[in-house]
Design a protein around this nucleic acid. Structure first.
Lengths: 182, 182
DNA sequence: TTGACAAGTAAACAAGCGTCTACTAACTCT
DNA sequence: AGAGTTAGTAGACGCTTGTTTACTTGTCAA
């Protein structure tokens, strides 16, 4: 047994991110995380304090939605639509988004997620928008992003038929255009 | 103490519906339900079997979304947009929708919710649509409905500014029109 | 080589959960 | 009026949870 605090805590964080994304906050236990990381339960608390704090840290790592939002504002609607269409159809999703979809319901966890979505999605989309009340329109886009997550959570991957993917993506693009226009 | 099985079980069911809607499946305990209903915990299990079965029964009662979906297909987008705009802005929401928003994450509960959303939202919207693949388009509408729930859950009521409500509703209407068109 | 510090472990803690059993008390029917 | 049925109750059961404590073991500087 090699003793390496940094490596162990990183394994714990990765295990937490994957498990929270897969099963949601409530369904994941500290023992599951420790087992997945090949570490002792006590270490999880020692290194990260509480379960909620670990969740907050896991949330902050490995997000790629910022990359989709960043870039040419003119293509934002297209990029978001593509991301969502792929997400609805395939089994591959982004850990952070899934974490939001499958969030627990306790006030503490909700507050953590609220802060995260506001900072990484709403504020960043709003920053790209011209015209009045950019945050209200960014919120509509967030509605679609989170709604896709809910649908995929309830209906599972592959809910969009293969032949319809392109058409769905086009409709999503038009819907995003309505959200985002001034 | 008057002894009335029917009245007691009805109070339990109502308490369950309200509490599940307010706090979500995971956060509500059998003891909370019993206390809210002014009944003994054992009666909840006696009358409804298990917590999951009680949830399923509570889900089936008191839904009004069907009424919004039913009616003139031409006005469907408008009605849905109005419902969602009101829901985003005010504190008043529909118990069943909140129950879906705040769903627990266990596979059993997810399956119950999946069946419910598919039967009461997707199938009913799809039944109103002309053209090919009505279910795929109904699913997009469900995305918006569930997404509104997620946003409201995370951001709280009043996330839409008073002055922007009408404009948001108009955007929602256009977005629904894109979902629903043939 | 040794001793101190830190990484890792095992076990227990207290609390909360859903559920069940044994009991009491009210209502109904003859 | 009394027996039988049934609504309602109290309490415990077994289990799981997040967290902590006391301990062991590996590592590295002196």
């Amino acid at each position: 047994m090699t003793r390496d605090r940094e490596a162990t805590s990183r394994r714990i964080l990765e295990a937490a991110r994957d498990l929270f994304a897969e099963h949601g906050y409530d369904q994941v236990t500290m023992r599951m995380i420790a087992s997945e990381a090949g570490a002792n339960v006590a270490l999880v608390n020692r290194y990260f304090g509480t379960k909620a704090a670990l969740f907050a840290e896991a949330l902050a790592t490995g997000s790629t939605i910022e990359a989709v939002i960043a870039g040419d504002p003119a293509g934002l609607a297209s990029r978001l639509a593509h991301r969502l269409a792929v997400r609805l159809q395939s089994g591959v999703t982004e850990p952070v988004t899934r974490m939001v979809d499958r969030a627990g319901t306790s006030p503490e966890i909700r507050a953590i997620l609220h802060a995260h979505v506001e900072a990484t999605v709403v504020k960043r989309i709003a920053a790209q928008l011209e015209g009045p009340r950019p945050e209200q329109r960014a919120l509509l886009a967030a509605t679609m992003i989170l709604g896709t997550g809910s649908v995929r959570r309830l209906f599972g991957p592959g809910v969009i038929e293969e032949v319809a993917v392109e058409e769905v993506e086009e409709r999503l693009r038009e819907m995003f255009a309505i959200c985002l226009r001034p």
